[in-house]
Simulated assay, not measured.
Amino acid sequence: MLDLILDREFPGAAELRAQIDFVRVVAQWGVGSPSVDLEVLEGTPRSPGVTGVLPVDATVTDEDGSLFGEIIVWATEGHLSAIEYVWYGDEPPTGLPAPEMITVEVRA
């Protein structure tokens, strides 16, 4: 998921990509939630000035091509800190979507 979303170029993306091999999931946002908190191993270089929601739109469509949700990646003080799966509808997803269901664009 992170490889797909961080494949785009935006300020700080290269440093965040370098963190992918050093990140781990440390908490789930709720029982059954696919959204998770991340932790980057200590000593991994930070991405200067990157805090909050990354400037990337990662939209999720279902098998019929209808908009289903979006993936939001968060950073805190230059480190990857969370993956949030926002869904549109009544039934929450039980896991992250398959990569082929995601379209990624850098926000202008």
Rank of each mutant, 00 (worst) to 15 (best):
L4P: 01
L4S: 08
I5E: 04
I5A: 03
L6S: 03
D7E: 14
D7A: 15
E9F: 06
E9L: 11
F10Y: 14
A14S: 14
L16K: 06
R17A: 13
A18S: 15
A18W: 08
Q19L: 11
I20W: 06
F22H: 15
A27I: 10
W29N: 08
W29D: 13
G30C: 07
G30K: 09
V31H: 12
S33I: 07
P34L: 04
V36D: 02
L38Q: 04
L38P: 02
E39R: 03
L41Y: 04
L41E: 03
G43E: 02
T44H: 01
R46M: 04
V50S: 01
G52Y: 02
V53S: 01
P55C: 05
T59K: 04
V60Y: 03
V60W: 07
T61R: 12
D62E: 09
D62T: 05
D64P: 03
G65T: 07
L67A: 14
F68W: 14
G69T: 06
E70L: 13
E70C: 11
I71F: 08
I72D: 05
I72R: 09
W74Y: 07
A75F: 05
A75I: 04
G78H: 08
L80M: 10
Y85A: 05
V86S: 12
W87I: 11
G89N: 07
D90C: 10
P92T: 07
T94K: 11
T94P: 00
G95S: 15
P99Y: 08
M101A: 15
V104S: 09
V104N: 08
E105C: 00
E105T: 11
R107D: 10
